[in-house]
Design a protein around this nucleic acid. Sequence first.
DNA 1: CTGAAAGCGCTTACAG
DNA 2: CTGAAAGCGCTTACAG
Lengths: 339, 339
Amino acid sequence: MANSLLTINDVARLSKVSKKTVSRVINQSPEVKSETRARVESVIKKYGYEPDPQARGLAFRTSFLIGMIYNNPNPQYIVNMQQGILSALRPAGFELVIRPIESQSDHVVDQIESIVKRQKLAGVILPPSLSEDEQIIDLLNKAKCPYVRIASITLESSNKMLVTGDRSGAAQAAQLLGSLGHTRIAHISGPNHFRSSHERRAGFKEALEAQGLSLKADFDVVSDYTYYGGLKAAQQLLSRKVKPTAIFTGNDEMAVGVYNAARELGFSIPHDLSVIGYDDSPMAERLWPPLSSVRLPVYDMGQTAAEMLLAVIRKEKDAASRMHDTRLVQRNSTAKPAT
Amino acid sequence: MANSLLTINDVARLSKVSKKTVSRVINQSPEVKSETRARVESVIKKYGYEPDPQARGLAFRTSFLIGMIYNNPNPQYIVNMQQGILSALRPAGFELVIRPIESQSDHVVDQIESIVKRQKLAGVILPPSLSEDEQIIDLLNKAKCPYVRIASITLESSNKMLVTGDRSGAAQAAQLLGSLGHTRIAHISGPNHFRSSHERRAGFKEALEAQGLSLKADFDVVSDYTYYGGLKAAQQLLSRKVKPTAIFTGNDEMAVGVYNAARELGFSIPHDLSVIGYDDSPMAERLWPPLSSVRLPVYDMGQTAAEMLLAVIRKEKDAASRMHDTRLVQRNSTAKPAT
DNA sequence: CTGAAAGCGCTTACAG
DNA sequence: CTGAAAGCGCTTACAG
């Protein structure tokens, strides 16, 4: 049973060494005779001693707090990433403090500067789209605060970048629609100021073209990653003279909008219209018919980002950029085109 | 611009007082001459001095970290509550550390004890259903760690309890169904080991009886708050000889299951079957037809819980238990019974 | 390989 | 109303 009443002085006394030596054991310093180390460690274990992170932090001029700073509005994404991050942080003795940011707020950089300096954060994890903000990165660099950014493309060539393979998942969606025989294929994307919008569109478009198909300008519509945005865009697409037989959306929220537009206008999914989403949110499998969607391994991304951050903090030399792939989860929202 | 390079010694020097007096100003001690206070405050403001929370915590033998410990699997609930909590914590200078707990894990109490003692948490917020675990409460009391529990009933009579009026929302659902003329009304509840299951059922049942209706044992089915649980329960109910014309579910997840069971079995909502959910999750308004659902003010609950916790930490005498009400959000999933 | 002294940035007693 | 000393539980120089 953990008992935090013990201090380093108690452990020193019980081990018959100075507290400096206990400190060396805690910090895994190599320059401790192995029998001394063993003695100290046995006392630590016996009494369940745990060093006080605040005292260590004060002396180290840092803290054992990692910040997750985000503006992503998708709750499932946030919760999964938090859990993934924590799975890596906990064994290392770090805690996670969270800071949701309202993107519209004007003082984002000041807010972040305040928490980073005030709490002496040991490091920061930045999911998209905050990760794309170079002002924040500048601030973090100036403050010498380690960070890892998660984004759909490599924004800097370093060990501080976790890249998600957004393109490959989008390509799989294109391949499926192509192989089913669709030719009038539309894409509803997120807003242009998000990297992920570009990447998903690019991956989709490229894979279409690799099959001799194309994403026509008419069928390439920019929306906003919201349900209503998807609804509006689909209402518009499905009211045209030349209608798409398949729609790929940049996220699941918009795909739900497509579902409801289709229902409203009398299109049956997948018979009259094939739909593929992106995110594989919990909603995807609860829709009717269940929505095929590209799955982002968000928990794993969080875990990897945290592991990378710990490596940066520990200044491990071999740490490198890593990548997580996406894959299409097929359900029942696609079929051959009716015509 | 915040500049954390300043310490209390710098402020003392610049204000021409001792650091103890600066400390008194920081901690709002009344025994400082007002002109001295003004001088110190102007220096603090001018240089953007912010006291180091770790150093303060070390001296105070506590931290400025609030823990949110939870096992609730609903991401929207968690994210909304986190934001509500933070809205109250931030101005007070506290940070939020989160600890999702896997309910199945065996060492829940040990895990919580470890973080509470190790991080010297200033306080803990416990949403349901963890808030109902008296072992955790015992531990917190023994560790003298302030806490606020959020639950659907008063579990202790104190200022440490935020009660959500789960019954009133359920009653509103019953009133609506009764006023539409339904008589064969079913309820699919969450598992019995959750207080909320009881409260929602009780509120529903009472309000039914107040209208001369009843929740018959046959139509009172216990499920598990999951989509599949709701689906199964509804398949069963709708396959009976005597079928319900309305179903009230203990949460929205199960209501989605009801929707899909209805579709599968050829029941049209709301014409053949009225449905009301609970939670008003984002899914509710995206379903077809949009689902009427009881709304829990989760953000407000988080904010209030954090305010209450701060009052407990500050030992304010007038702090008292508070309550948040629920209300039915009507959409298009209910109608008069067909027969 | 080990330790005594000083310090991290605050606050708590204790004085006056 | 204000301050000098000691201490919170650790680590960093510096010695040896």
